[in-house]
Amino acid sequence: MRKWIDRKLVLFILWKGLRMATLLVAICFISFLLVKNSPIDPIQAYIGADMLKVGPEQRAKIAEYWGVDQPIMVQFMHWGSAVLSGDLGTSMIYRRPVIDVIGERFLNSLALMLSAWVVSGVIGFVMGVVAAMKKGTWVDRIIKWYCFTLASTPTFWMGLLILIVFAVWLQWFPVGMGVPAGVLAEDVTLMDRIQHLILPALTLSIVGVANVALHTRQKMIDVLASDYVLFARARGEQGFMLFWRHGLRNVALPAITLQFAAFSELFGGAVLAEQVFSYPGLGQATVDAGLRGDVPLLLGIVIFTTMFVFVGNLLADISYRVLDPRTREGRKA
C-alpha cells in the first residue's frame, strides 16, 4: 500500500516537472517575442545618456557584436541556450550578472513576502472563522465591512497612507529603503533591516487579510451548514468545541491550499508596495527593469517569477494530497 502511494507521488512529481518545463519554454518564448516587439531599443538603453557621443557606425557595430541584427529565431536560440546553461546575462542598470541581482533582491523580497504571507494568512483565517461563527451579528458585520473596504483598496494607496501615518506623522518607522542611508553595509544590524521591513510588510498584510478572511468566512459558513455539523450539534456539541472538532479541520484544508495558491497575488502586491517604500526587492527591480529597458534583467525576472508562482501552486497541490485523507489514502474498502 505504502509503496504504491510512493510510486504515485513520484509519478505526480515527474508529471508536474514536465508541466513546469513546458510552461517555462512557452513563457520564455512569449516574453522574448514581446520584448523584441516592444519599443525598447537595447542599444539605446545600454548607451543611455551618452547617445550623442555614439555615431551610427558605432551603433551598428554594437548591434553586430550583440547579434541584434540577426533573425529573431536565431536570437532566441542564442539567448535560450545561454539560459539553459545557467547564464541569464548581465543586467544593464546594475552592471552585474542578472542571477546575482535576482538572488539578492529576492532575499529581500522573500523576507517581506513571507512575513506578509504568514501574518495575513493567520489573521485572515481567524477573522474569517470568527465572522462565520458569529454570522449575522455585529462582529460579522464589522469584519465584513473591513474586508470589503480593504479588498477594494489599491495596494499602493494603502502603502502611501501607511507611509504618511507611521513614517511621516508618527515617525515610528523609516520612510523607505531597505537599510538606513549613510551607514556602511557591514554596520547595518538585523534590527535596522526589520525596522525597514515592517511598513511594507504591514501594507501587504493589511491588504492580504481581506481576501483570506472573506474566503475563509464563506468556506466556514458552508461547513457550518453541513450535515455533519448538524449531527454534531444534535449530539450536544456547540461553540468552541464544535469548531475545534469539526470546523477547524474542514476549513483549514481549503484555507491552506488557497494560501499557497496566493503566491502569485503576493508577488503582484509586493511590486507595488516595494515601489511605494523604495524597498530594494525583486518587485522594485521589476519596475526599474521595465522602465529603463533592462531586457536581460526583465526576462530573468519573468523566468524566476514563473517558477515562484508555479512552486506556490505545486505546494498547494501537494498540501492537498498530504493533508486530505480522501486523496491520501485512496479507497481501501
Binding site: 453541513s226 450535515d227 455533519y228 448538524l230 449531527f231 454534531a232 444534535a234 449530539r235 472538532r245 469539526h246 479541520r249 474542514n250 484544508l253 486530505d324 485523507p325 480522501r326
Partner: peptide, 14 residues
C-alpha cells in the same frame, strides 16, 4: 440522541 440518515452526517475528515 439522533441516528441520522446518511454518511454525510459524519465528519469527512475524522
Amino acid at each position: 440522541a439522533l441516528v441520522p440518515q446518511s454518511v454525510n452526517f459524519l465528519d469527512p475528515l475524522m
